[in-house]
């Protein structure tokens, strides 16, 4: 028990320690929950893909001279003649050793881990930049809009956001390409890099990367911006009505402290939930955006793999995305507990 003589720091350290311990327990418990969820999702996807069709037939369908025996040999080669449970257990066993199999369709059986590794980074880069910019722009606008509720500024912001939410990204993306690439010629039409190093702006690889990122990031930012603005605004309005804001004002705190310390921390709780859910999902890639901008991301890879019934790639991406979603949820929960002490101690 801390005594009167103990200073601020000593007591704070003690309390911090207790919080940290309960936090560790909390995280561990959440991690344990993840295991059954992960395997559940895996089983569903594994069974569902194998019910979707026969990849061997798809591969050989256009070859009129293929023999029945050749098909049988291919089926055996891919192990698709084995019972489903055997295939699944084999997959899990290999997965635990870090092997997600080889693609049926891409460049003579590229390892799925390599594929996911390459494509995931491109997706991650795009989405992270878009999320960063949308939050940095949306939060201040949402706060301002809430503080000046029903003003002209607020009306403009809410209307624009509503319109922004309604415009589909493929439309936005195509219009952006049309204007900035076709008419103005400022940005490339798509892809993540210039194929020819001589076309790098100022000969810099990094600049080339940023140059290619600009349009897709802008389109994604715009698409993500609107819902966050509306969420921050409504959440802030709710918080500003609370008694503790009035109490904070009544105790002579400056408007800045009241808004950015007392109100914002409370208003961000629903935003964290939103971003957490969104972040998990967006690592699956934005198939449409990636298609429009011809971006070599996970989303595009996923869609292509499904259309070719490329089982290892489908399951491989599923494993990756599931893990990412679960991790994102965990991070959300931790962020939650950090912001809101009511969750920390149960």
């Amino acid at each position: 028990m801390p005594t009167k003589r103990e200073g601020f720091k000593a007591i704070r350290f003690k309390v911090h320690n207790i919080a940290k311990n309960s936090m560790t327990k909390y995280v561990l418990r959440r991690l344990l929950y993840l295991i059954p969820i992960f395997f559940g999702i895996l089983i569903i996807v594994f069974v569902a893909t194998r019910m979707a069709g026969d990849p061997v037939k798809l591969m050989t369908g256009l070859n009129p001279r293929i023999t029945f025996e050749a098909r049988e040999r291919l089926t055996q080669y891919y192990g698709l003649d084995q019972p489903l449970y055997y295939q699944f257990l084999k997959f899990v066993w290999e997965m635990l050793q870090g092997n997600l199999g080889n693609s049926y369709a891409i460049r003579g059986g590229t390892a799925v881990t390599t594929l996911v590794g390459n494509y995931a980074w491109e997706t991650f880069k795009l989405q992270l930049a878009a999320l960063f910019f949308s939050l940095v722009i949306a939060i201040p606008i949402g706060i301002l809009s809430a503080r000046k509720q029903y003003s002209k500024l607020d009306m403009t912001v809410t209307t624009t956001s509503l319109v922004g939410t309604c415009i589909p990204i493929f439309y936005m993306g195509i219009v952006a390409i049309l204007i900035f690439s076709y008419f103005l010629g400022w940005f490339p039409y798509g892809a993540a890099h210039s194929l020819d190093p001589t076309r790098y702006p100022f000969g810099s690889y990094l600049l080339d990367e940023l140059w290619h990122m600009f349009l897709p990031v802008a389109a994604l930012t715009f698409a993500e911006l609107a819902p966050v603005v509306l969420l921050v605004r409504s959440s802030m309005l709710e918080v500003l009505r609370q008694d503790y804001i009035l109490a904070a004002r009544a105790s002579g705190l400056s408007e800045r402290t009241v808004i950015y310390k007392h109100a914002l921390r409370n208003a961000l709780i629903p935003v964290v939930t939103y971003v957490g859910l969104y972040f998990g999902g967006m690592l699956a890639g934005a198939p449409i955006t990636e298609k429009v901008f011809n971006w070599p991301g996970v989303g595009r890879l996923y869609v292509e793999a499904i259309s070719k019934l490329d089982f290892p790639v489908i399951t491989g991406i599923t494993v990756f995305v599931t893990l990412m979603v679960l991790v994102a949820n965990l991070i959300t929960d931790i962020a939650y507990a950090y912001i809101d002490p009511r969750i920390r101690i149960e």
């Binding site: 008694d243 009035l246 904070a248 009544a250 105790s251 408007e255 409370n266």
Partner: peptide
Amino acid sequence: TEGEMQQIRGKEIAYISQEPGTSLNPVFS
């Protein structure tokens, strides 16, 4: 002015609000 009022609020004139439950900010100790 607003600045002068901030010096009066809490220091000269203090306020206790209706709801004890909600007059304290839930996310700060």
